[in-house]
Computed example of a mutant assay.
Amino acid sequence: MASAPQANLPMFYNDLMPLNSRDHATWKAKNADAAPWLVGQHAIPLTAEEFPQAARHYPIIFASGDNPVPLALMGLNEGVNVFVDEDGKVNQPIYIPAYVRRYPFLLAKLNPNSEELSLCFDPSANLLGDSVEGQELFTDGQPSEATQAALGFCEQFEQAGQRTQAFIDELKKHDLLMEGEVAIQQQGNDQPFVYRGFQMVNQDKLRETRGDVLRGWAQSGLLPLLYAHLFSLELISQIFGAQVQLGKGPTPAIAIPAK
């Protein structure tokens, strides 16, 4: 079974293999009761349309650099995720980002000279296989309902990604993003813990935005997303406190390594 090109695989993915009826005719897919791929992952990509739901549980930031991807912070320090245990089981009712729910599937180009995307999966996830108990991937040589659902979800994710890029482009057009900094004062420490290395919306520039632009954002649904992001930043102190309770508190002057 030929694997797809492995260069520059996204977060979580260790390998990629195209799903096809010839090689995987008898394979099944099982539902995961845990997400071990989440262990140690502190920043998870978000699509813009997820902001209202994600903002109830995570601080939403933007990665530094020229490609400011929205991220849900599940921990403030690299290697720390306060929402899953060591086995990857989610320890409280939270919104699970679509990026997490998509795994182990992914739409990818098998031919660099073509724009066509094919449904692939990460075989290292051990969620698909011939000996796995679960839903059939193919029925009479045709994609099963489970496979069609996985394909549909991946297609929706790609479309949401395109809308997210348009959202980011609008923020950059109006120069609304700035380098962020958060200082948290913990009792018993003279110096605050300072987090940098991420971007956030500049509220001063947002207040100065022209009325006609704001009306357009309100009509398009962009304005509520901006406020969901800003309100979510209040959760940073809660994530900090959860890290301390887990014995994974930071040392002074550690930055958020947003990626």
Rank of each mutant, 00 (worst) to 15 (best):
residue 167 F to M: 02
residue 142 Q to K: 15
residue 139 T to G: 03
residue 110 L to H: 04
residue 110 L to T: 00
residue 157 F to T: 06
residue 144 S to H: 15
residue 172 K to S: 10
residue 124 S to M: 07
residue 174 H to E: 05
residue 94 I to E: 13
residue 153 F to P: 00
residue 89 K to Y: 05
residue 158 E to Q: 09
residue 137 L to I: 11
residue 123 P to E: 02
residue 102 R to D: 06
residue 154 C to L: 10
residue 151 L to Q: 11
residue 102 R to N: 13
residue 93 P to F: 04
residue 139 T to L: 15
residue 154 C to R: 03
residue 145 E to P: 06
residue 86 E to D: 14
residue 87 D to S: 13
residue 174 H to P: 01
residue 165 Q to Y: 03
residue 172 K to R: 14
residue 156 Q to R: 12
residue 111 N to C: 04
residue 116 E to C: 02
residue 151 L to P: 00
residue 86 E to P: 04
residue 137 L to G: 00
residue 127 L to H: 04
residue 145 E to D: 14
residue 102 R to C: 01
residue 146 A to M: 14
residue 101 R to Y: 04
residue 143 P to M: 03
residue 99 Y to D: 13
residue 94 I to F: 11
residue 106 L to H: 12
residue 90 V to R: 07
residue 126 N to G: 10
residue 122 D to I: 13
residue 103 Y to D: 06
residue 115 E to I: 01
residue 93 P to V: 03
residue 109 K to C: 02
residue 118 S to Y: 06
residue 173 K to W: 14
residue 164 T to L: 05
residue 97 P to Y: 10
residue 162 Q to H: 09
residue 93 P to M: 05
residue 117 L to T: 00
residue 115 E to L: 03
residue 87 D to A: 12
residue 149 A to C: 07
residue 154 C to I: 12
residue 149 A to K: 15
residue 92 Q to F: 02
residue 170 E to F: 13
residue 127 L to K: 11
residue 155 E to Q: 14
residue 147 T to E: 01
residue 123 P to T: 06
residue 133 E to V: 12
residue 166 A to T: 02
residue 125 A to T: 06
residue 161 G to D: 07
residue 86 E to L: 08
residue 173 K to C: 03
residue 174 H to Y: 15
residue 158 E to L: 07
residue 134 G to H: 15
residue 98 A to T: 01
residue 115 E to G: 04
residue 111 N to I: 00
residue 157 F to P: 00
residue 125 A to R: 11
residue 163 R to D: 09
residue 117 L to M: 07
residue 117 L to A: 02
residue 97 P to H: 09
residue 142 Q to H: 14
residue 104 P to V: 02
residue 133 E to C: 05
residue 143 P to L: 01
residue 135 Q to D: 13
residue 100 V to M: 14
residue 93 P to N: 06
residue 155 E to S: 09
residue 124 S to A: 13
residue 104 P to E: 04
residue 162 Q to I: 01
residue 157 F to V: 01
residue 167 F to T: 01
residue 98 A to Q: 12
residue 133 E to G: 02
residue 112 P to R: 06
residue 139 T to C: 03
residue 130 D to V: 11
residue 129 G to R: 10
residue 128 L to W: 09
residue 113 N to R: 07
residue 170 E to T: 11
residue 111 N to P: 04
residue 103 Y to M: 05
residue 138 F to V: 03
residue 115 E to N: 08
residue 161 G to N: 11
residue 109 K to Q: 12
residue 102 R to Q: 13
residue 137 L to K: 09
residue 119 L to D: 01
residue 142 Q to L: 09
residue 110 L to C: 06
residue 132 V to T: 08
residue 137 L to Y: 10
residue 118 S to W: 04
residue 123 P to D: 00
residue 127 L to T: 03
residue 149 A to S: 15
residue 95 Y to F: 15
residue 107 L to T: 01
residue 159 Q to T: 04
residue 121 F to D: 00
residue 111 N to K: 08
residue 173 K to I: 00
residue 119 L to I: 06
residue 138 F to N: 02
residue 97 P to E: 04
residue 164 T to Y: 06
residue 149 A to N: 14
residue 87 D to P: 05
residue 104 P to H: 06
residue 142 Q to Y: 10
residue 162 Q to Y: 08
residue 160 A to F: 08
residue 135 Q to W: 02
residue 90 V to L: 15
residue 120 C to H: 10
residue 149 A to M: 10
residue 109 K to P: 00
residue 155 E to Y: 03
residue 112 P to L: 03
residue 155 E to P: 02
residue 113 N to Q: 07
residue 89 K to G: 08
residue 159 Q to R: 07
residue 148 Q to G: 13
residue 116 E to V: 01
residue 148 Q to F: 01
residue 91 N to K: 13
residue 141 G to L: 10
residue 126 N to W: 08
